[in-house]
Amino acid sequence: MKTIPLSAAFACVASLAAAETPVLDVYTYDSFASEWGPGPAIEKGFEESCACDLRFVTAGDGASLLARLQLEGATSAADVVVGLDTNLNAQAAATGLFAAHGQPAVTGLPTPYADANFLPFDWGWFAFVHNKSLAFPPKSFEDLAASDLKIVIQDPRSSTPGLGLVMWVKAAYGDRAGEIWAGLKDNIVTVTPGWSEAYGLFLEGEADMVLSYTTSPAYHLIAESDDTKTAAAFDEGHYLQIEVAGKLAASDQPVLADAFLAYLTSEAAQSVIPTTNWMYPANPLAAGLPQGFETLIQPAKSLLLSQEEAGAMRDAAVAEWQAALAQ
């Protein structure tokens, strides 16, 4: 019983000490704020100019982040949220917790995107990553379904890339999505709860391909000097994941929050993104992308459902996925 008053006391002391400098609470997903993500560099860079203390509060992934905001509701301490994606935006907008960001539109996306509440800070194409030694990489989902290649994917009910894949098939094939999934069924070795389990299984040699991003091979090339990985280019196009940030309407630091969003899309923060988050920056970099990114595949066509479409068809698309694979 001692712990509660004691920690409350600690919390009081901490907030008294912090009253000197304003605190900006940024909610984000784990890997953004981790030692290897863009978080530490962005925190350092922003604190140099803001005369404030930037604090990251983390939740597992984009979906957990949104769930946490919904749990906290209007009493949330969050000022800014970094790391939702376009498939979650409709649900996020419906909470009514977000305010207009007021920033100029970003210009580095492969497809036009503008939203009053959500500001893109990076993006990537979903893709199946494989070893270059793979003899005949598939050129489409139908190709893949006809092959006997083994793939690992993530569950759309517990993972944002998993949901992205379901949306990809839906955007590319519409009403034929169920049929495509039925064809893919015998290629799917297993479905994992999250991205890291699937990627781990692929690296262990349990599958020929794994659902990830076109930028994943850049990690192996740049961080590990390993050029054996590549991604398969699909003719029907690649679905986009656009990661967005937003400002909370109930923020007690609205001015700092605006300044942070401006910083997040500035050259300083954007140049950190490619080799920490392993995604493309939302604004073009003056010096261009880091060396190694030029080796990545460039999909000719980008697919993206609008957030209204994505929000409206999500449940039905997941049910279709589930029905096709559960037979």
Binding site: D155, T190, V191, T192, P193, L201, W321, L325, A326
Partner: peptide
């Protein structure tokens, strides 16, 4: 989920997570 091979192997705990 990881070893189940697909959504046939869904447990209640996964439903709770979802």
């Amino acid at each position: 989920l990881t070893l189940g091979g697909g959504p046939r192997a869904s447990t209640i705990e996964l439903s709770i997570y979802q």
